[in-house]
Design a protein around this nucleic acid. Structure first.
Lengths: 138, 138
DNA sequence: ATAGCTGCAAATGCTTTGCAAGGCC
DNA sequence: GGCCTTGCAAAGCATTTGCAGCTAT
């Protein structure tokens, strides 16, 4: 759960991407520590405040390239913006509606059963469970 | 599952909204038959082709007013557009990734169990399951 | 050298808003 | 009449795209 710059370089090369300055910086923010959930804007802010100059266009390019390479997964929980999750294994999420925070629910800690017959001629692509939570009022 | 214009009028008044020409036309498209899943654009097209003049702004106004009144529920499945569901009871969805079609999964036909401990100080707002499907490749 | 990347600025697509004119009670 | 609605056009936002210049190999 701790990747050094060599690990990151390797991860990027394996995805057939060039280890550019910006890409490495983003990979560092995303993958160096444990799992993360970020929006493009948040990642942009983090990059800026960590002293790396990256344009928003490049943030989007890289988020999509990482996603295409299977290094990230997009999570659809909010109609106004996209979230990207560094945990690409099947799992679910808690979504805090007020703060916009996402939190993983490991796949084995929640079970979805008895999925009915699929629509004619289709197969499952993924099963996404979102447990939306709000501050408890009591 | 079949509402005539009197029923629709009543439904609208109960929501403290005025039964205007446009609102009635939209309510008719949405609620007269069984459950539906629509995007703003789709509803706009349907209104137009059924001969009713409604601006897109009014479509959005009404979708939100109906949602606030509990007559519709917004479903988040696609980061690029919003879907509105006339079925406001707890239930889940199949989402066809290619066609953009949504289909209900009755609550009792699918079970979500063992939801882990919620994040500190929160309570559940809703549990949404989306079974994403694609055309079967065989 | 050259194919890939980056950044800017412009464009896009969905959605929202401001405001004047019109419709419902 | 007064307030709610509508519709238009403009504005807003997140995201995408075109393209010239830069960079990794």
């Amino acid at each position: 759960m701790h990747l050094n710059s060599e690990d990151l370089r390797h991860k990027i090369k394996t995805a057939n991407l060039r280890p550019t300055q910006q890409r490495l910086a983003l990979a560092d923010l995303l993958f160096a520590q444990g799992n993360r959930h970020v929006t493009a804007e948040r990642l942009h802010n983090e990059a800026m405040s960590s002293g790396v100059t990256v344009s928003l266009a490049t943030i989007y390019n890289n988020l999509h390239q990482f996603t295409a390479a299977g290094l990230l997964r997009e999570v659809v929980v909010d109609s106004s913006r996209s979230y990207f999750d560094t945990n690409v294994d099947p799992h679910h999420h808690f979504f805090h509606e007020k703060t916009g925070e996402l939190e993983d629910i490991p796949r084995n800690e929640l079970s979805v059963d008895n999925i009915p017959t699929l629509p004619e001629g289709t197969e499952i692509s993924s099963v996404d469970v979102i447990v939306r939570v709000t501050a408890r009022r009591d």
